[in-house]
Design a protein around this nucleic acid. Structure first.
Lengths: 329, 329
DNA sequence: TTGTAGGCGTTATCAC
DNA sequence: GTGATAACGCCTACAA
């Protein structure tokens, strides 16, 4: 039983015959310490040989920076789009030395959420802008968070934000339905907590075009969809929040003998692959993004390293809507 | 500019007029230190007033335990089933004081993955059993990881494992197709790295029933699906790995003028809501689980706290297949 | 019942 | 160029 405690930098130093500080210098390429190339090699070799990995918490404690990019997302199904975006962003951040931590939280006893976030000493945090206050932003900043980025449907007065223009999505969908002659419009608003806000934003957009559009709250279950589909006063055009809800609704309507799109036209959003796989194909509002995940990763990196600053109220990346027409709906 | 460094336990101690140690005792309910109820109150009040949050890294460094349950999942789309499972598990673990960290990793320069995992000093880790060796398990154990749990399609000799019996899934699907008179079977194996292993397992199961079953490798894109669908020598029964691939394939077949299920019958798996929303409805192999996320969370907790031990080779939870017949496929 | 002190592994400021 | 040494914030014997 070789009680292999993981090797520390002291072990590496001993193995390389140098002091522990030298190890730290070499492994971090610290510029203000001049170390001979030969020594560097010895240190690197020793580290490799022992399989040395720096202890993340010790480094965090010492530096006050964790390399964690925290994304405390409301756990509810945020929809495929955000999920994919975050997955990609995480991939892009890793090679830059950051770790994207997705941290779904629901109840937080009584502790203000920002306190909990701060406890993790994240280097950066991306969070729904509505959950931020001036106080929480200050707390985060004070606790070493270099970059606070909001996620919202409009620029935030507190922080730079990634803006997804949900209103325009709704408006875009409604315009399409209206142009097709649909007069009695409705918009689905998900009942799921955390998504409902985006749903309301999209509804607002629909009502810009069709002020009388009905609001239909819908939980993501077949029963709930059936209840809607069997109403006797169905609208003739429905914006279904996104493609997943659109499919759910379409299925229920088909079961109820309602013809889609003849009787009720449906428009989804997010342009998931899903939308083009079902029959009839789903018309969907696609988000064009002005920044790729790679671009966002680079941007965050610059912000953290101080190579760039972003004012509160500024917009990092706008996700704008564009219509993808698929079926005849 | 109140350069509010976040309050430390020393600050709390000062505010409460006690020593720092007492703060630690009170806040952690340390049983072998007797502290008067009055002092406890003073400490708690001070902590609340200052908005004290323990520094996660300092605690981790000191105790050697992070409360992190690490899930270094291959990033490829693991499919909705695993994803949902992990989401739920995370919810269940949080109130128990653990943080489930999903950590998608792809390239890890040359560093052995286990070294990187160990660097985070996770309290527990759930990882595909194939990625574990005796050495990596030892390393993790030595670095303070209390619980290593495998994720596999068969019991692992190294660690207790959550077992999803992929072979049975394939066999179950194949049996269904054979009973419906399908003679020329095929099984889809995803090209996506990380999922392919499960795909191969499921294929094995299909071949238990139909030894001649063809293996079709398929990437999750419409082009790839089209290529398969336009073959002139299509099988008459296809097990599509899971519901998502099934839908992808079905769409392509419909585009190619192939009737589903008359010409080609398709069976999916995982019983996603999706499967019952599309037309024709997808027959799917459902996983019955003998343990709920809540149960797994409790189990992990017991393992970590030492209230329970699990031998290598033991099975934590079996996910077994059951057929859900939906359409006439 | 409470306080003192040592150390977890790292980085960074100094002398040498 | 390199090596002691002092924090970072917390937990926990042990002393008082």
């Amino acid at each position: 039983m070789t009680s292999n405690r993981p090797p520390t930098s002291v072990d590496v130093a001993r193995a390389a015959g140098v002091s522990q500080a030298t190890v730290s210098y070499v492994l971090n390429d610290n510029p203000n310490a001049r170390v001979s190339e030969e020594t560097r090699q010895r240190v690197r070799d020793a580290a490799a040989r022992l399989g040395y990995v720096p202890d993340a918490s010790a480094r965090t404690l010492r530096t006050g920076r964790s390399g964690i990019v925290l994304v405390p997302l409301s756990p509810a199904r945020t929809g495929g789009l955000v999920r994919d975006l975050l997955d990609d962003l995480g991939e892009e951040l890793r090679p830059r030395g950051y770790t994207l931590v997705q941290y779904g939280e629901r109840h937080l006893k009584g502790v203000p959420a920002a306190k909990v976030w701060a406890g993790l000493r994240p280097t950066a945090i991306i969070v729904e802008a509505d959950r931020l206050t001036r106080a929480s932003v200050d707390l985060l900043r004070a606790s070493g968070t270099r970059t606070v980025i909001g996620f919202s449907d409009a620029p935030s007065p507190l922080v730079p934000a990634v803006v997804m223009d949900h209103e325009s999505v709704g408006a875009c969908a409604a315009r399409h339905l209206a142009e097709r002659g649909r007069r009695r419009l409705a918009a689905i608003v998900p009942r799921e907590e955390g998504v409902d806000l985006m749903g309301v934003g999209r509804l607002r957009g629909v009502r810009q075009v069709a002020p009388d559009a009905e609001r239909i709250d819908l939980a993501f279950t077949e029963e709930a969809a059936r209840a809607v589909a069997t109403r006797h006063d169905l609208p003739d055009g429905i914006f279904a929040y996104n493609d997943e809800y659109a499919l759910l609704l379409m299925s229920a309507l088909q079961d109820a003998g309602v013809r889609v799109p003849e009787d009720v036209a449906i428009v989804g959003a997010d342009d998931l692959l899903l939308a083009s796989l079902v029959r009839p194909r789903l018309t969907s509002v696609h988000f064009d993004t002005t920044a790729t995940p790679a671009g966002m990763a680079a941007y965050i990196d610059e912000l953290v390293r101080g190579d760039r600053t972003a004012e509160p109220g500024s917009v990092i990346s706008i996700y704008g809507p564009r219509l993808i027409v698929r079926s005849s709906s």
